[in-house]
């Protein structure tokens, strides 16, 4: 009898509708108005790569040890260096990082012994060309410069 009444008065459907009604409150809005409202990415976020420079003298921190290139599963990092006869050390000449093949696993930054290579919180890396996805040393040091939209 109770089941029949429940069927006639659509109790199960109204029960569900009551849930949707409760969730109408504006505090349950989760949509981010993306270009105007910037998302807050986590501190450990693995995004665009960056090659850190020493803030005091602008020289690169990279010691051209090639460990990142060896750690990379996709072998997308190419490091070249030349031997400096004065200091008996290797000087970095070029550093290319192919972001089109990168899967942001973070193995390169784990491998880096001097914290020169780092995956940053920048996540807007779109370009108009495929060549633009291959980042050179200058691009890696400066980081991407996405257009900021304001409303």
């Amino acid at each position: 009898m109770r089941g029949l009444l429940n069927r006639i008065f659509l109790v199960d459907l109204f029960q569900g509708l009551w849930v949707t009604f409760r969730n109408q409150h504006p505090k349950y809005i989760y949509t981010e108005q993306y270009p105007a409202e910037r998302p807050k990415v986590a501190e450990r976020y693995r995004g665009a790569p960056r090659l850190n420079i020493n803030p005091d003298n602008g020289e690169t921190l990279c010691i051209s040890c090639n460990l990142c290139a060896l750690a990379c599963p996709e072998a997308l990092i190419v490091v070249t260096s030349e031997r400096n006869e004065a200091t008996k050390r290797k000087d970095l000449t070029t550093f290319t990082y192919d972001t089109s093949r990168c899967m942001f696993c973070g193995l390169c930054e784990d491998a880096c012994p001097v914290d020169a290579l780092e995956l940053t919180q920048d996540f807007e890396m779109a370009t108009y060309t495929r060549e633009g996805q291959i980042w050179d040393r200058q691009m890696l040091e400066e980081g991407p410069k996405p257009t900021q939209y304001k409303c």
């Binding site: 990415v41 986590a42 501190e43 450990r44 976020y45 693995r46 899967m103 973070g106 995956l119």
Partner: peptide
Amino acid sequence: LKIFEKYCGARLTTH
């Protein structure tokens, strides 16, 4: 997913 992102830096392919 936010907890994953805070813990390891990625939301889906976490590693």
